[in-house]
Design a protein around this nucleic acid. Structure first.
Lengths: 125, 125
DNA sequence: CCAATCTGTATCGTTTATCATTACAGTATA
DNA sequence: TATACTGTAATGATAAACGATACAGATTGG
């Protein structure tokens, strides 16, 4: 998994702590220790899905758009990293019926696991 | 996550279907669609932890060492891919108390999620 | 209207992770 | 002693992740 998921949560947490004013990508990037452009890319996704709003121009930035209770980890995971857990099954011979089954079963498990516990963190830190 | 976890399960599944004879790394590799050396590396880990036995020389190979019911996904994950889910928290300023917390909390969640559902697959495919 | 400040994206180059491949030593078998 | 394996190290190719730069579009304030 790449760090988009982590960055998204870091950013949302930060935004949740600043409900009144807009936060710039530079501010968030500094806190997360990454490049502002990366933050903008990730937050662009979150915006597209309605988690945050953004405003361009002077005094612009990003701001939370929902109630904290409406956010759960699984949603964010889906947006930022869907498929990252999915292993590969390179084509093989007879026996890769095993492989194909395994892939879907494992995927289901990881899905189920996250879905099950995703809500546990919906009231972040 | 890299594919060691997947390969380990694929291999174990295969070995479980061949409880009588030894399987060579080449046989397993062909089924999994990867290079035999990769299989040996992964199975070397599994052997080190007692899941399988191996024998060198002619007629050698790998064979299951436990009951299927003694194997659970989480154990295998720990062996092959521990830390792969762990995101990074590049050092940052004041606010990375957030980051540090997040890291451990997320880690706990993924751990808990897998642990919780790991047993579901202990009777593989 | 113009300068300053942000977002939104695309692009390029570097680093890092993953994997295949080769090579070779050690071990068992026949 | 030749053959068929495991065990492991080393090298190189490929791909993914990321930083950095550049620039267009939007908004604000003077």
């Amino acid at each position: 998994m790449n760090s988009d998921f982590t960055l998204a949560i870091h950013s949302l947490t930060l935004l949740a702590l600043q409900p009144d004013r807009m936060s710039t990508s530079e501010y968030i990037a500094e806190s997360a220790g990454v490049h502002p452009v990366r933050i903008r890319k990730v937050l662009s996704l979150l915006k597209k899905h309605g988690f945050i709003k953004s405003k361009e121009g002077t005094g612009g930035g990003f701001i939370f758009a929902l109630e904290l209770s409406e956010v759960n980890l699984w949603d964010i995971y889906k947006i930022t990293s869907e498929g990252a857990l999915q292993p590969k099954c390179p084509e093989s011979n007879e026996q890769c019926i095993v492989g194909a089954n395994m892939q879907s079963v494992l995927f289901t498990i990881f899905l189920g696991a996250e879905d099950h516990l995703g809500e546990y963190l919906k009231n972040c830190t």
